[in-house]
Amino acid sequence: MTTPTPIAPQPGDHHDLVENTENAIELKEVEGLSQGRIVLRRFVRHRGAMIAAIVLLGIVVLATTSIGWGPIPGWWKHTPQDMSPIANPRGAPTLSFSGGLVVGEHPFGQDNIGQDTFARVMRGTQQSLLVMVIIGALATTIGIVMGALAGFFRGHLDNVLMRLTDMVITIPVVMIGAILGFWVGGASPVTLAVALSLVTWTSMARLVRGEFLSLREREFVDAARVAGASSFRIMFKHMLPNAIGVIIVNTTLLMAAAILLETALSFLGFGIRYPDVSLGQLINEYQTAFATRPWLFWWPGLFIVSIALCVNFIGDGLRDAFDPRQRRIPSKRKMAKG
């Protein structure tokens, strides 16, 4: 009698075994938890998102507490409008790491008239963050309403709303933003943010429309309709919570794009203008000094890049947390242990 020949393991079997084991462990860990707790646990385990959230929180706290906000005073001794004698040659930063951290009177340096760059960068960070949050909130709201109406009612209303969306999409956002920014750029950052929100809602509207087109065919929508619920109650009470994952993730991406749009417009002179301050306006103001006093250019640029990257990493973590199909590839160490 012949002995059965053992089947050799295939190259992908070990990877599949490890992945299935990890999936089973994850399912066991989240058993009995609410959907919100599951999403929170997945988000907290995303290292990049957590580091980005901590860094972004630190930037917000630093910007709001250092020079104060509105009537609330800050702990920094200079304001964005203060002019002091030049401390270092050419206004070089007093911040030093040699022999220990030394902050000094002007850690980010001074401009040619003696204004403290740290105070101005903090003020610009406040304004840019304010514009980013308002654009994110208002553009998301407009996109949700437009997309929900188009996806739920379909027909002629869908055609009208989507043709309007397509018309806004075909025109470059920077060009529309430049026109709107030229009209309201000298006004408050709130006015500028509201104007820019009118041209940045289109991607959210298309995504929400796609979600609502899919959700309107689900059984719970039919059950709510049979129970006598109105169309608006079905849309915003039953369907919207099921699309919240896509909305939150794309809101973070929208906010990251918003701060870059505000920076670009302010750099071109169509956004926030002097005597007010934003990070893009600072780069525009100090661009001619890049060769001789580069610190005036570096610090606003560093905060712009940091904020945009942090928001993008947070959005990446939220995407993984809300999407159960997202699986991280096991590391070599985990595969070796398996």
Results as ranks from 00 to 15, higher is better:
Met1Pro: 14
Thr3Ser: 14
Ala8Phe: 02
Gln10Cys: 00
His14Phe: 06
His15Pro: 00
Glu29Ala: 14
Val30Glu: 06
Gln35Phe: 05
Gly36Phe: 07
Ile38Glu: 05
Leu40Glu: 07
Gly48Leu: 10
Gly48Lys: 05
Gly48Tyr: 04
Ala49Leu: 10
Met50Gln: 14
Ile51Tyr: 13
Ala52Pro: 10
Ala52Phe: 07
Ala52Lys: 04
Ala53Ile: 14
Val55Gln: 00
Ile59Ala: 07
Thr65Phe: 07
Ile67Ser: 08
Trp69Arg: 10
Gly70Arg: 14
Pro71Asn: 12
Ser84Lys: 14
Pro89Phe: 08
Leu95Cys: 06
Leu95Pro: 03
Leu95Thr: 08
Ser98Met: 10
Leu101Thr: 12
Leu101Met: 12
Glu105Ile: 09
Ile113Asn: 11
Gly114Pro: 11
Thr117Met: 15
Phe118Ala: 12
Ala119Ile: 12
Val121Leu: 12
Arg123Ala: 15
Thr125Trp: 08
Thr125Met: 14
Val131Phe: 04
Val133Gln: 04
Ile135Lys: 02
Gly136Thr: 03
Leu138Glu: 09
Leu138Met: 14
Ile142Asn: 04
Ile144Pro: 05
Leu149Trp: 08
Leu149Phe: 13
Phe152Arg: 05
Gly155His: 11
Asn159Leu: 13
Ile169Pro: 00
Met175Thr: 09
Gly177Arg: 01
Gly177Ile: 07
Gly181Gln: 03
Phe182Ser: 13
Gly185Gln: 05
Ala187Thr: 02
Ser188Leu: 08
Val190Ser: 08
Ala193Ile: 02
Ala193Glu: 09
Val194Ala: 12
Ser197Tyr: 01
Ser197Gly: 15
Thr200Pro: 00
Trp201Ala: 13
Thr202Asp: 06
Leu207Gly: 07
Leu215Cys: 05
Arg216Lys: 15
Phe220Trp: 09
Ala224Leu: 03
Ser230Pro: 03
Pro241Val: 05
Ala243Lys: 01
Gly245Ala: 04
Val246Arg: 06
Ile247Arg: 04
Asn250Pro: 10
Thr251Tyr: 02
Leu265Pro: 03
Leu265Ala: 00
Phe267Val: 02
Gly269Lys: 03
Phe270Thr: 02
Gly271Tyr: 01
Arg273Pro: 00
Gly280Arg: 05
Asn284Pro: 02
Asn284Ile: 00
Ala289Asp: 13
Trp298Gln: 06
Pro300Leu: 02
Pro300Ile: 09
Phe303His: 06
Phe303Leu: 15
Ile304Asp: 07
Val305Cys: 13
Ser306Phe: 08
Ser306His: 08
Cys310Met: 04
Val311Ser: 09
Gly315Ser: 11
Asp323Arg: 05
Pro324Glu: 06
Pro324Tyr: 06
Gln326Glu: 07
Arg327Pro: 00
Pro330Ile: 09
Ser331Trp: 08
Lys332Trp: 07
Lys332Gly: 07
Ala336Val: 06
Ala336Asn: 14
Gly338Cys: 09
Gly338Asn: 07
